[in-house]
Simulated assay, not measured.
Amino acid sequence: MTQEWQPVSFDFLRPDWREVPSHIRAMSTLRLGGCSVGVYGDERGSGGLNLGEHVSDDIAAVVANREKLNASLPSDVIFLSQVHGNIVVHAENLLPGICADAVVTSTPGLVCAVLTADCLPVLFSDAAGRVVAAAHAGWRGLASGVLQNTVLEMRLKGAGEIFAWMGPAIGPEKFEVGQEVYDVFTSMDKNAIHSFVKITSDDIVGGGQKYLADIYQLARNILSSVGVCDISGGEYCTVSDKQKFYSYRRDGVTGRMASLIWIAAGDLPNGLSV
């Protein structure tokens, strides 16, 4: 079971994967507990923990939020420049501005992280706790193979059995998509039809067939197809819970949350240790 630990001064979600070794650390931040204000603040009118530099928030607030996050980590986060694609990079070679949607490492102390505000963050660890990864999976990334590529890169680094945790994303009752999204997934996997619910014509605004998509189920199907069967998470809806989560679909202009994972080794800052 993962050992208890507590980052400083902000709320977060912890993956509920009990079989992952105790030296694996993972979390997903919320919109609470930072310095951002206005639409980037929290629902209670206090400062929000927006970690996205590209969303027109005050850059000084974002820098302060990132410093608060980094103070609880073994190394400063280098965030990806996410493009809704399928490129996976190695944290050992990561530089600011690299375009990718997933990052993997086998080096203790290096943090893998992705930013989201409705798209699906997926965190990975192998059973031995030697390889970890984080992936940003919106529907385009899912369709282009970002999860399959992440698992492949982990296995190339020696990962055996792999565990996955799905962080907060848009829920199946809020993720309205068009015919093209339905067609993309069902053309790849006929069983994907079970991840969509057709919206009746009376409910459609603007014409055209619409569906409610379950991004969590789509991800489960993809992960299972590449041998990842121990999958947890998937119970949140970023759109529905305005108090906890930023949501682009709900608000348009909004902040970004981070999902992070790393391999702990030795004594860590702020009293964290293995």
Score class of each variant (00 low, 15 high):
I215M: 09
S144P: 07
S225C: 05
G145Q: 10
F124L: 11
H23S: 06
G109F: 01
I98C: 10
T186P: 11
G34C: 14
A213E: 03
E53C: 07
N70Y: 00
L95E: 10
L30I: 09
L13M: 15
G160T: 07
L260N: 00
D11L: 12
A135M: 07
G266E: 01
L152M: 12
L123E: 02
D76Y: 02
R140E: 15
I87Y: 01
T116S: 06
Q6V: 11
L80F: 04
Q6H: 14
P121W: 05
P172I: 09
S144C: 09
V88H: 00
N65F: 05
V132E: 00
K68G: 02
G129F: 01
T186D: 11
L73P: 00
L51F: 04
N191S: 12
A133H: 08
V103T: 13
F10T: 08
L30D: 08
M188F: 13
R155W: 01
G85I: 12
A134L: 11
W165I: 01
I231D: 05
L260G: 00
L223I: 01
I215N: 06
L110G: 01
V131Y: 00
R250F: 15
V197I: 14
K244Q: 04
V226W: 05
V177Y: 07
G38A: 13
A213C: 13
D230I: 05
L120G: 01
I193V: 15
M188N: 13
G271T: 10
I162E: 03
V89E: 05
M1P: 12
G97L: 02
I59L: 14
Y236N: 04
V226N: 07
F10N: 07
A127M: 04
V205T: 13
S240A: 12
S187G: 05
T254A: 09
P7I: 04
G227M: 02
G266R: 04
R256P: 00
V20P: 00
G34L: 06
K242M: 12
I59Q: 14
E4N: 12
E67L: 07
V114I: 09
L272K: 06
G45L: 04
A219Q: 01
L95I: 14
V37F: 11
